[in-house]
Computed example of a mutant assay.
Amino acid sequence: MTATAHYRGRFAPTPSGPLHLGSLVAALGSYLDARAAGGQWLVRIEDIDPPRCPEGTDSTILRQLEAFGLTWDEDVMWQRQRHDAYQHALEQLIDRGLAYPCSCSRKQWQAFDIYPGWCRDGVCDASQPVAWRLRSDLAQRPVGWNDRLFGEQHFDPADLGDVVLKRKDQLWAYQLAVVVDDAHQGISDIVRGVDLLDNTPWQQQLQAALQVPTPRYLHLPLVVTAGGQKLSKQNLAPALAEESRGIRRQLFQALQLLDQAPPPALVEEPPEVQLRWAIDHWSVAHLAPQPHRSAPPEP
């Protein structure tokens, strides 16, 4: 990739648990793409859902990134400190007729594939707490982009339903927060797992509605278990290694899962050596879109 001074990438984990191999692959892919472009790489802690974020997990994640040599530019951003920015964005959407309060519960509309928009013209039950939803039928549609791995993507967000922007418990929802923060941090390129690809249509609607730039997107292949399940905290994926040998081997494995074909001798090198090689040889063209199975750890 040609050096691009304005490139700004980010890794934005939810601190619901320590990083595992799948999250390492996502972090490493975004890091290498930024560094190979001569750009900046930021870290944002997406902790807008406190019940899911045990105390101290954010510090654990930052220590894990440092142990694997993934150092960031600029101060870490915590979403829990960004309430005013999200509220301002929501008020903009309300003023433009693109957000509305909704009293409906999931149980009420579970027979439908998507939320049917019952509260679009007025709250159905004023005695109930309300969430705020995006009017996906009135925001920009259809949307499309050229994903750097998965190619041309085309969606009509109205087919996906009116996504929640602020929950009934007054916590902010992911879709609004991520768009506001990417714009605030000047993110030019988003590199993340393909499991988030279908979030992009709503995010592009919000980018257009809030009149902020749309980044480039690269969705990385999914890392799955031997049984084909997504490697995730919900599936009890083990935390990353903490001792030096395990760190070297897991970093090497992550490079393999990113299809970068590192030379076998690199597995014994420390993170800084592996990363130097990986930055010099980073190639999106080598990525294969199908899910990648993670091998069991070596003894």
Rank of each mutant, 00 (worst) to 15 (best):
V163W: 05
E242V: 10
L21D: 03
Q234H: 09
E152N: 10
L98Q: 05
N146D: 14
Q250C: 12
E74K: 10
W118S: 08
L210R: 02
G69Y: 09
P221T: 08
V224C: 14
P263Q: 04
I48E: 04
H154T: 04
Q110I: 05
V224F: 07
W109T: 09
G227E: 15
Y7R: 12
P201Q: 08
D280S: 15
G228W: 09
Y31M: 05
A295L: 15
P215H: 09
A5T: 12
G144S: 15
P54F: 00
T60C: 14
P271K: 11
A226L: 11
V25F: 02
Y7D: 05
P291R: 10
H184Q: 10
D33I: 00
Y100E: 02
G9S: 06
F68I: 08
L149V: 14
R135M: 03
R96S: 14
A239S: 15
I114D: 11
L138E: 06
P51N: 10
Q170R: 15
L275K: 08
A27F: 01
L160K: 13
G186D: 00
L70Q: 06
G228L: 10
R63I: 06
P264D: 15
Q92E: 12
P299V: 05
A226F: 00
Q175L: 09
R148Y: 00
D159F: 00
I45G: 07
G38I: 05
H20M: 12
T214E: 02
E46G: 07
L93Q: 10
A139T: 11
D137R: 07
P291M: 11
V273N: 12
Q170L: 12
V178D: 06
F150Q: 11
T14K: 09
P201T: 02
P291Q: 10
H83F: 03
Q110K: 15
A237G: 12
G246Y: 13
L231Y: 01
W202H: 15
I94S: 12
E55L: 05
Q207I: 01
E272R: 11
F68L: 12
M77F: 04
L197Y: 00
I94R: 15
H154R: 13
I114R: 15
P291T: 09
C53K: 04
R245D: 14
Q128S: 07
V267I: 11
R276C: 05
P262S: 14
S294M: 11
V191F: 00
L138V: 04
P15L: 00
A226P: 09
R148V: 00
L90I: 01
V267C: 08
Y217W: 13
E242P: 07
W145K: 09
R167G: 08
D121H: 12
F150K: 11
G246I: 11
H219I: 01
W172H: 11
A126M: 03
L240T: 10
D156A: 08
T225D: 14
Q256F: 03
P263R: 06
P50K: 10
P51I: 02
P201L: 03
F252R: 07
R249E: 15
T4N: 15
Q92R: 13
G122T: 04
Q64I: 03
W118G: 02
I190G: 02
L93D: 02
H88Y: 01
R216K: 14
I48A: 13
